[in-house]
């Protein structure tokens, strides 16, 4: 019963995207507008490009940078946020400062990192890490700061040490909020990965696509855009699945109440 209901929902959700792609395919079939080539031609080029070693050359390094920068951002954001958030004094000193950092559009910090680190690898990692860190740091600080008093006192009465209370009570209790920061951080990290390629030295999927557009390689630009769009979407899906597994306790509890 539940499965058929879900299947029905998927089917209802699927007809519109299918119709949209079909509409694009048919209306562009004999397109003469140079900027909107037939979708069939784009698709041909897409397979030719991205099912070849071009994928290894252009896409894998981008994903690797994203993974390294994001992992560092998670580590700094969660550990730093937990330490700052558990001390009201540190929060008072640092939170407005971090808030200001975050109000700078992440992409606009890329030129700053270019001045600091040059155009290559270090700049990209630094910019991605910085961009990912900010939202994670802020949500972790908030989550850890606002731990439920009953949980804290229970831990205290049972003689847990300060560090045990931080890592075993305050941080797990903050996880639902931390995850919203992790998601935002991942989205921003993805954007900055591409921006660092647009603005830095020319390799990676972002640079490939922008150079294609600048050189009027219209088909290549379209395939790059579509690939980046799909990557962005897949990354989000992977994140959602991870969140659902990690926060099983929270989701289950919410469903009951």
């Amino acid at each position: 019963m539940r499965i058929t209901k879900r299947l029905l929902a998927v089917l209802i959700g699927a007809w519109l995207p299918i119709a949209l792609v079909a509409w694009w395919w048919s209306t562009s079939a004999d397109s003469t507008n140079p900027y909107f080539p037939p979708l069939a031609t784009i698709w041909e080029r897409f397979i030719e490009l991205w099912f070849s070693d071009q994928f290894l050359i252009n896409v894998v390094p981008s994903l690797r940078n994203l993974a390294i920068g994001y992992a560092l951002g998670c580590l700094i954001g969660i550990v730093g946020g937990a330490l700052v958030g558990s001390s009201p004094k540190a929060t008072a000193y640092l939170e407005p400062f971090i808030d200001f950092q975050r109000s700078i559009p992440a992409v606009a910090t890329v030129p700053v990192f270019i001045v600091l680190f040059g155009l290559d690898f270090e700049m990209r990692i630094a910019a991605i890490t910085f961009a990912a860190t900010m939202p994670i740091l802020i949500s972790t600080i908030q989550g850890v700061r606002d731990t439920n008093l009953v949980q804290l006192e229970t831990a205290q009465v049972f003689h847990l040490t300060r560090s045990q209370i931080l890592w075993r009570v305050r941080l797990p209790a903050a996880m639902p909020l931390v995850f919203s920061g992790l998601q935002l951080g991942l989205q921003i990290a993805f954007v900055v990965t591409i921006a660092s390629e647009y603005l830095g030295a020319g390799f990676g999927i972002g640079a490939f696509t922008l150079i294609a557009a600048d050189s009027f390689l219209i088909l290549d630009a379209w395939t790059g855009v579509i690939l980046m769009g799909l990557l962005g979407y897949v990354i989000n899906i992977v994140f959602d699945a991870t969140e659902r597994i990690s926060l099983r306790w929270y989701i289950g509890q919410q469903k009951l109440s």
């Binding site: 009953v150 229970t154 009465v157 003689h159 847990l160 075993r168 797990p172 209790a173 306790w249 929270y250």
Partner: peptide, 27 residues
Amino acid sequence: AVVLQDYTRSLMPWLTVEKNISLPLLN
């Protein structure tokens, strides 16, 4: 040892029953 009225908050919702019970035994 304490037992509080607010069991929904004094038990940690992210830990299973056995992990909750072993929490005070950590040290």
